[in-house]
């Protein structure tokens, strides 16, 4: 393990590249740390807080914390999983998440996390906030009712070097993500698909693409989110043998 540093996640010895963040290092070692806002290779925002892990007795977001030699990390423990479940429940009540009528259902990361943590019902009262829909551009449908403010689109989707999405009313009561109508209108079909894929929920959709895969063949229909990462454990073990 030349050039790598040792970290310990839930008592398991793992090897990480110096400077790597905890969430990516865990993934490379076959350990899944749940997250909504993290995109590999993009500067982390730490906005969803779902990837909370405990490092040296402190809760830290695994996406914004770089690894250090000998770092001891607690991840899959009841206390943290309960905290993550609570965050997911907050996201469910603070938006308008009507899973049965959502085009992203089955491929939605928020929903998949709720499945993973077996969320029967949110413990908080539903807010039913009033939020807008922007369907003005040719290929993109922007539904703020489903937005979880993960900032993935803000950090990744650009057109001619300009950000298409941005926060609005920062500091006000109604912080929300807005889409630049002019830039969005210029986006190609391919770029619209990329924007839809980057959104963890159904807030950004490519038009005329809804309900594309039938029930039973969608991303999270048969296996919980994170299974691909966890399956890697067996893969790595086989490699070692």
């Amino acid at each position: 393990m030349k050039g790598k540093i040792k970290i310990i996640i839930d008592g398991k010895e793992c090897w990480a590249k110096p400077g790597q963040n905890v969430i990516d290092a865990a993934r490379d070692n076959g350990i899944y740390i749940p997250s909504l806002c993290h995109v590999e290779g993009v500067k982390p925002a730490g906005s969803c807080r779902v990837c909370n892990v405990r490092i040296e007795g402190r809760n830290m977001t695994a996406c914004t914390t770089p690894v250090a030699d000998g770092m001891e990390i607690e991840n899959d423990i009841p206390e943290l999983n309960e905290l993550r479940k609570a965050i997911i429940e907050v996201l469910f009540v603070s938006g308008n998440h009507f899973c049965p009528s959502c085009e992203k259902s089955g491929n939605c990361e928020l929903q998949a996390l709720a499945y993973r943590f077996r969320m029967m019902v949110p413990r908080f009262p539903y807010e039913f906030p009033i939020k807008g829909v922007d369907a003005s551009s040719k290929y993109i449908y922007h539904d703020r009712n489903r937005c979880v403010m993960c900032k993935r689109c803000i950090r990744t989707i650009t057109k001619d070097g300009k950000n298409v999405f941005a926060y609005s009313s920062r500091g006000g009561k109604h912080l929300h993500v807005v889409m630049d109508k002019e830039l969005a209108a210029q986006m190609t079909e391919k770029e619209a698909q990329k924007a839809m894929d980057i959104c963890p929920v159904g807030a950004i959709l490519k038009k005329e693409r809804g309900f594309y895969s039938p029930i039973g063949q969608r991303k999270y229909d048969t296996e919980p989110i994170g299974s691909d990462v966890e399956k890697n454990i067996d893969h790595l073990k086989q490699k070692e043998q």
Binding site: F98, P100, V121, P122, F128, I130
Partner: peptide
């Protein structure tokens, strides 16, 4: 509570705003 409507209002709750 059986189903999404009983749990969160479901599709009828689309009128809530």
């Amino acid at each position: 509570s059986l189903g999404e409507c009983a749990i969160m209002g479901g599709l009828p709750a689309l009128r809530n705003g």
